[in-house]
Amino acid sequence: MQGSGISVLFMGKNLLRLLGGLWVTLRISLIAVLLSIPLGLLFGMLMTLKSPVSRIVSRVYLEFIRIMPQLVLLFIAYFGVTRAFGWNLSGDTSAIIVFTLWGTAEMGDLVRSALISIPKHQYDSAMALGMSRVQTFGYVVVPQTMRRLIPLTINLTTRMIKTTSLVVLIGMTEVLKVGKQIIDANRFDYPTAALWVYGVIFLLYFLACFPISMLARKLEKRWR
């Protein structure tokens, strides 16, 4: 009784379940990105400060987050925190915390590189025009930084969306897991379902990421 794999997609609530799974991914990514942007801006500025303390602290933070695989961080936040301190964080909370920590580090580094890529002469000429520090940042440095940051931030967002599929390992049923569940539940009757399910997941990821890239391109064009 082996049927065509495509029919699997339309059985019961399967399509809805896939969309629900996508939402799990998107919700975590978007919340994490929204938290990461302001925190990353602060963190990036902290990284450009001349104080050795803030430099060392931010460097250690960045390297720590970079070196640790996100999976390990997820396990620490989800299981490790419970083991060590008895705080029982939900999968949702753990994921948002980990991806915000990661996003803040990455965003901070992007902000830092965007900030130092603004030539010193831009600061000089702004100040020579009588601008205060705040005005120099507000009218000259930040707008230029933003422009440089937008494509990078979008890139980070799409990376975030793809990386959040890891949350499956702390028990969250995101879109890939739903896909696997559907494939598994039908593996006796519809062995070819995998192709269709993964095809749909690919399409869903594309539909989620494409508008974000489009928005970025539009913003970039407008500000060119």
């Binding site: 419970t82 060590a84 301190f85 008895g86 705080w87 964080l89």
Partner: peptide, 13 residues
């Protein structure tokens, strides 16, 4: 902002 639930003891119960 997480809905952390602090256990009574230091280990998972």
């Amino acid at each position: 902002c997480g809905n952390a639930k602090t256990g009574s003891s230091g280990t998972a119960s």
